[in-house]
Amino acid sequence: MWYDVPVTPVRRRADATENRARIIEAARAELARDADIRLNAVAQRAGVGQGTLYRHFPTRADLLAEVYRADVDELVAAAPQLLARHDPLTALRAWFGRVAAYAEVKRGVFAALEVATWQDLSAHSLGPIGDAVTLLLDAGKAAGVIRPDVDARDVIILIGYLSRLDAAEFDARGRHLLEVVLDGLRYRD
């Protein structure tokens, strides 16, 4: 029957894939500069025409959501990579450094997106980010350097303040507060 026909995913041409990646990176850079990004500035920075930008991202919200999703995916992928190269406490510290960079983008994205879109994005990220935090915490617990009474939800709640810091405070307080959180997660006899 017609509904039994398997659907194959659409493959993008190599140049379209490169354009999309450049657009996302340009949007990320524009967000770091100003949460109120202009799409023509993104297209110009990416070296693409407005038509190309709109073909990939029909609305500003679509583009911002994709920047957010890409950052979440990179943040989640970093956890096992960091654990492969570092001891658990150093890996968690390095991951927190990435969280700080992620929070700067997240703050801009959430300021720019509407509430309904934000809720969808938040639901997308909490599961994978929680899994990444659990991986890091479990490694630290196994090594005896992370308190046994903390879990991923504790950490996510604690680092949630990052999205609430205004731009003027972020550089001065963001990384310092992550060090305070890290210090509180350490196991002590």
Rank of each mutant, 00 (worst) to 15 (best):
V180M: 03
A16L: 08
F110W: 12
R45E: 11
Y3T: 07
G108K: 04
I156Q: 10
R147T: 12
P80A: 11
D131N: 13
R11Y: 00
I129Y: 05
Q50M: 11
L126D: 10
A84N: 04
G97W: 01
A123S: 10
D120P: 01
R22P: 03
A32V: 00
D166P: 02
R107W: 01
Y68C: 04
Y54R: 13
G144L: 14
G130W: 04
V109I: 02
A152H: 01
V105P: 04
T8W: 10
Y187A: 13
M1N: 11
R60E: 03
A132L: 09
E30M: 14
G130K: 09
R164V: 08
T117N: 13
V99D: 04
R13F: 07
D166M: 00
G144M: 12
E74M: 10
S163K: 02
I159N: 03
R11W: 03
D34E: 13
R188M: 05
F110V: 12
V99E: 08
A167H: 10
R60D: 07
D87T: 04
A32T: 00
H124L: 14
R98T: 02
V5L: 15
V145N: 11
F96D: 02
A123W: 03
I156V: 11
D4P: 09
L83P: 01
D62G: 11
Y68A: 12
A103V: 05
R186P: 00
Y161F: 13
R147H: 08
D166T: 02
V48Q: 14
D166K: 06
L136F: 03
F57H: 09
A32F: 07
A116Q: 11
A65Y: 00
A26S: 08
V5F: 09
P6E: 15
R175F: 02
T90C: 03
I24E: 08
I24L: 15
P80N: 11
V155I: 10
H176Y: 13
R188E: 13
A101E: 14
I37F: 06
R69Q: 12
D87Y: 10
R107V: 05
Y187G: 05
R60N: 04
P128V: 05
H124A: 15
A100P: 08
Y161W: 01
I156Y: 03
R107H: 15
V48L: 14
A78C: 06
A79N: 07
M1Q: 04
A29M: 13
R147E: 10
E66W: 00
R22A: 14
Q50C: 01
M1V: 03
L83F: 01
A21S: 15
L83K: 02
T117Q: 15
V99Y: 14
V48M: 15
E179F: 08
P88I: 05
F170S: 07
P80H: 14
V155W: 03
A32W: 06
V181Y: 01
A103W: 02
R147M: 12
V145R: 10
I156G: 01
A27R: 01
T90F: 06
Y187S: 08
D149N: 15
V155L: 12
D166N: 08
L162H: 00
H124W: 02
G140S: 06
D131W: 08
E18W: 11
G47N: 05
M1D: 08
R107S: 14
L53T: 03
A35I: 02
L31I: 00
L135F: 04
Y102I: 04
A61T: 09
L63A: 12
P80K: 10
A77Q: 08
K106T: 15
F57M: 07
G140C: 06
R98E: 12
R153K: 12
L185V: 04
